[in-house]
């Protein structure tokens, strides 16, 4: 969904060829995941059908020489998408919660479950920290977003570790 809005938004500064659009997307948003050409062209075909882009023909066109331009309807769509707040993701820690409760119910070490998860979270946080200190501002912002989310998980792990006795008393028959 957001790939299509991102491509559409990139056209606001002027018409582009498909390959140029892909390159700009990869440079700006791609990071680890660059777009396939196929995805660019299928997205453009859909946007064309919906009237959000139009094709500017060039003399001697082959299929790769199509230049895509955003329409007024496309601009309105991008504007609405940017302005619309995202629904906050409700991540209920369900898998981890299940593991902890099951460990308690079956007499396994629930603290160990939380500890090894913490180590795994920290390992990833270290990797992101290294990556952002070696990168540019864009890397830093992208990694920070992930780091803050991981940190929130970790706070849940801490709190749950501190409440294990109470949780055990509640879930055990």
């Amino acid at each position: 969904m957001s790939v299509s809005f991102a491509l559409l938004g990139l056209l606001e500064n002027g018409p582009r060829h498909g390959y140029d659009l892909k390159r700009t997307y990869d440079d700006t948003f791609g990071r680890d995941r660059s777009l396939h050409y196929g995805q660019v062209y299928s997205t453009m075909a859909r946007l064309l059908k919906n009237g959000h882009v139009e094709v500017e023909s060039e003399p001697g066109d082959g299929p790769d020489r199509k230049r895509y331009a955003i329409t007024d309807a496309g601009i309105t769509d991008v504007a609405e998408w940017i302005a619309r707040p995202e629904k906050p993701e409700l991540y209920l820690q369900s898998t981890l919660y299940t593991k902890v409760v099951l460990a308690l119910l079956t007499g396994r070490d629930a603290a160990e479950v939380l500890d090894s998860q913490r180590a795994e979270h920290l390992r990833l946080m270290r990797e992101l920290t290294r990556r952002k200190s070696a990168g540019d501002l864009a890397d830093e912002l992208i990694c920070d977003h992930a780091l803050f989310h991981l940190e929130a998980d970790l706070r849940w792990l801490e709190l749950t570790a501190a409440r294990l006795d109470r949780l055990a008393a509640q879930v055990k028959p």
């Binding site: 946080m125 270290r126 920290t129 991981l150 706070r155 570790a161």
Partner: peptide
Amino acid sequence: EARVAAWSDREAVVRDGKVR
């Protein structure tokens, strides 16, 4: 703070006066 700890090479967790 986990984000501060993420600058380390490894962590040791202290709980009830013991270290993991």
